[in-house]
Amino acid sequence: MSRPSSPPIAAFSRRHEQALARIGDVLIPGDDTLPSYSESGAAALAPRALAGARPVDQVMMMRLITVVGALPRPLIALMLLLIRAGLRLPGLVGAPARLLDLALKGVIMNTYYCGLDRTAPDGSSAVFQALDFRLQMHVDDEDAR
């Protein structure tokens, strides 16, 4: 008799993804080894990254991405610069900068550096290749309990 409801992040759309990619490219424009944020396709991972966030935070994140992502690129850069400048301000004065940093830089770094991109020529993570990063772990059946 009860109805299941889906989390707000389920509404994360292609438009949100494009907006996030625009912001991400300001932080990670890419270079000769690192793909740019949009090239990595990381923005598509945002719903997966935010799946564990509180519903209110999911809604806020999508709004933030929509608003900031709609700004002209120089304004996005300026905004990120201001956020960076505000990070070390003490107490509540610096709180907005740190929260915006957590929200934007948090989701961008999380989706980009998690190694889930498959953009390298061999089908592995181009980001991890650029970092020359790989973790090893041997798991045998005996461990799997």
Partner: peptide, 14 residues
């Protein structure tokens, strides 16, 4: 991977 570890093993998604 870190993304899933945060989202699925921690409160508030990380």
């Amino acid at each position: 991977n870190e993304l899933d570890a945060s989202a699925r093993l921690m409160w508030s998604g990380g």
